[in-house]
């Protein structure tokens, strides 16, 4: 088992290695926009997160990789307080997510999340899906909300599908609408939870292109993915999670030369 090697971490977040309860993957210089510190989370007797710590700087794109059950999605869900952590602390845009009195509306206006299963509202058209929160949460007028909806649909290349219902779209298109719906709320951080896992390679490509554009536009993004090539090409940093901990972090190149046998084995099994 790899020891924690704080000294291996260079000022520019070169590959670093962690163990259970692992050291924080820290952002050099800039103050982080997302910070997880020693986060523990259990579901019954199953401890899923065992002291997860990492930080994300503004404008960074982080890809979280790891085997199923390693705690990637749980970590993401804890950031948006869809799961309440047992121990540790999480801070997003200055909001203490672990505080029981956290202002959930404020938190969720700062954080957008896109799920594997799209979760569009099937009774509403694409445009209405996007407008709903703009009108009822952000209190925009119908005209303003429609304008924003068309703008973000244009951004994901689906302006012409504004009047379609979700069931009339392909999986890739539905996922792009889900991204547009989150983007419309102008979040400071976007979380993507295995958004391409249910899509075939062609549809995956169209969703990844949208995400790549977002990353290029400076959006702070945390992405749980199995798309190693994409993670390597686009992510500023990769976090490899193993058995509920941050096991290894570093730039995309770390996938070419994994430092831990666990990441090595994961990459060999997955690729």
């Amino acid at each position: 088992m790899s020891p924690i090697v704080e000294s291996l971490r260079t000022p520019y977040m070169d590959a670093s290695v962690g163990t259970a309860g692992g050291g924080a993957a820290r952002v050099p210089g800039a103050s982080p926009i997302v910070r997880l510190d020693q986060v523990y989370k259990s579901f019954g007797a199953n401890q899923v997160l065992k002291g997860v710590s990492f930080e994300v700087a503004k404008g960074e794109m982080i890809a979280i990789i790891g085997a199923s059950g390693s705690g990637k999605s749980t970590a993401l869900r804890c950031i948006d307080r869809l799961e309440v952590i047992d121990r540790g602390s999480i801070e997003v845009c200055g909001i203490r997510v672990d505080d029981p009195a956290v202002d959930l509306k404020r938190l969720r206006l700062e954080v957008g999340i896109v799920f594997q299963s799209y979760n569009l509202f099937p009774h509403l058209t694409v445009q209405e899906n996007i407008m709903l929160a703009l009108r009822h949460v952000k209190k925009l007028s119908r005209g303003e909300a429609a304008e924003v909806a068309i703008r973000v649909l244009d951004q994901v290349g689906l302006k012409q599908k504004a009047d379609a219902y979700p069931e009339q779209l392909s999986g890739g298109q539905q996922q792009r609408v889900a991204i547009a719906r989150s983007l419309a709320m102008s979040p400071k951080v976007m979380l993507f939870d295995e958004v391409t896992s249910a899509l075939d390679p062609q549809l995956t490509g169209e969703v990844l292109r949208v995400m790549e554009d977002l990353a290029a536009g400076g959006m702070t993004m945390l992405l749980v993915t199995h798309e190693m090539a994409f993670a390597k090409r686009v992510a500023d940093r990769i976090i490899y999670m193993h058995q509920g901990t941050v096991w290894e972090t570093g730039p995309g190149e770390m996938l070419d030369a994994p430092r831990t046998p666990e990441l090595h084995a994961f990459l060999n099994n997955g690729l």
């Binding site: 959930l104 969720r108 979760n119 509202f121 949460v137 709320m185």
Partner: peptide, 13 residues
């Protein structure tokens, strides 16, 4: 349940 979650994430009460 994801319909509840999606709404929650969009800051709906």
């Amino acid at each position: 349940k994801p319909q509840w979650e999606a709404s929650e994430c969009l800051a709906f009460t």
